[in-house]
Amino acid sequence: MEPDGGATLLAWMRRMRNERPVWRDESGNAHVFRHADVMRVLGDPGLYSSDTVGRLGGDTPSGVLLLLDPPQHGKLRRLVSRAFTSRLISELTPQITTVTRELLDAADGERFDLVDAVANPLPVMVIATMLGVPLEHQAKFQAWGAQLLATDAADPESVRRMEQTGEEISAYLQKFVDARRSTPHDDLIGTLVQAEVDGQRLSDDEIVSFATLLLLAGHITTSVLLGNILLCLDSAPERWEALRADRSGIPALIEETLRCRPPFTRVERVPTQEVEIGGEVIAPNTLIHLWLLSANHDERVFDDPAAFVPERSNSRQAAFGYGIHYCIGAPLARLESRIVLELMLDRFRSVRVDAGSPLSFHGSNVFGAEQLPLVVQRG
């Protein structure tokens, strides 16, 4: 991402799509860049396993939804879906609106940092409330998220800190699971404790794992998406005034942002047998990096993919994945983003990224700004 916010990365991906659509890095891992190949792998969980941890030499942590294959994945997803429903998400609209107003009220003056003021605190506060976790602990969640984002897989000390952070999160959330098992409660953890399908219920590990996924992945996804929306609008400032006059374009603008700047650059899979992708033969148990960002910029699917065009059809964009592992929190991220954008449109005549302040960007797999200083005109 540094120093140009992703322009160099996107140029590299364009070259790879055309010249090396399936590429082997120095470690022997495979990288897949074209939309058709990425979607084919994501759509075949039998041939391409999500259990990258277990198949590459470790033990799959119990209850980690992202790492499970059928049939275990289907069982856990059905149980979680009993609690994490579309109705639950839609009923959050008043709370998200209230919290966003309060956060924007606190952002005084003509300059503020979107990440610090809104994008980081909002999703943590919303998810903490959903789970039944005290709001005063939100700083703890953000610190945990920052620690996991900073993990360097090649640095043993960094990996050790990541593992320690995971243990801290699990121990913290287990207390709430224990409390809900002894005294029923109507928050999300309480509902997960009671969720049942065909006589089966979630284990403590599965509940803690899903709650952790929401707190961390849910926080990061919405935070980065909000920043990316403002980055995209900064490249097309005339659209701000158009949206102030007609809010019906907000959903399409969010989808085009997800296509242009998805929160995560890639996901991983491992083939269960020898496969061929793009003419490249790949042995079983080879780590495959599926570049969602590259798929979303594939010229074979999207005309002039570098252009920010909310009017285009984005039904094939892959920001939230595809198939059985399609992001369960996608509706929440979309809802939070829509509400924040609507409320910002209500109070700001214009919003621009502060050209006088240097931008810093996440590393690793997260495609977005760590800080996003804005200059606004109120009224």
Rank of each mutant, 00 (worst) to 15 (best):
T257Y: 06
L213W: 01
W144A: 04
A139H: 14
A369D: 04
S313T: 12
F84A: 06
P263T: 09
D25W: 00
L192W: 01
T272W: 01
E19M: 04
A242T: 15
V133C: 02
M344P: 06
R40Y: 08
T98H: 04
R181T: 12
A128H: 07
L215Q: 03
R316W: 07
L104V: 04
L114M: 13
A330G: 10
G368V: 12
P71K: 11
E342F: 06
I127T: 04
A330L: 10
D198P: 02
S170V: 07
V159C: 05
R244E: 02
S158L: 06
I339Q: 07
V64E: 14
E299K: 05
S209D: 09
R334Y: 10
R338H: 11
E370S: 10
G6F: 06
F141E: 04
V118C: 01
R180G: 04
Q164F: 06
T129Y: 02
T272A: 07
S315W: 02
Q138H: 15
T97H: 09
A117M: 02
I220F: 05
Q194L: 12
L335I: 10
P61M: 12
S294I: 03
Q142S: 15
F348N: 06
E255N: 12
F302W: 08
A295V: 11
R40N: 14
H31K: 00
G363M: 08
W12C: 10
V351E: 03
V281W: 00
S50F: 05
M344F: 11
V118D: 00
R349K: 13
P373S: 14
D346A: 11
I328Y: 09
A150D: 14
D178H: 12
K175M: 09
F210V: 05
P184V: 12
A195R: 05
E91S: 15
V99M: 10
R349H: 12
A153F: 11
K175V: 12
V38D: 03
L131T: 07
I328S: 15
T212S: 15
F112I: 03
T100C: 07
I324A: 14
I282S: 01
V267F: 00
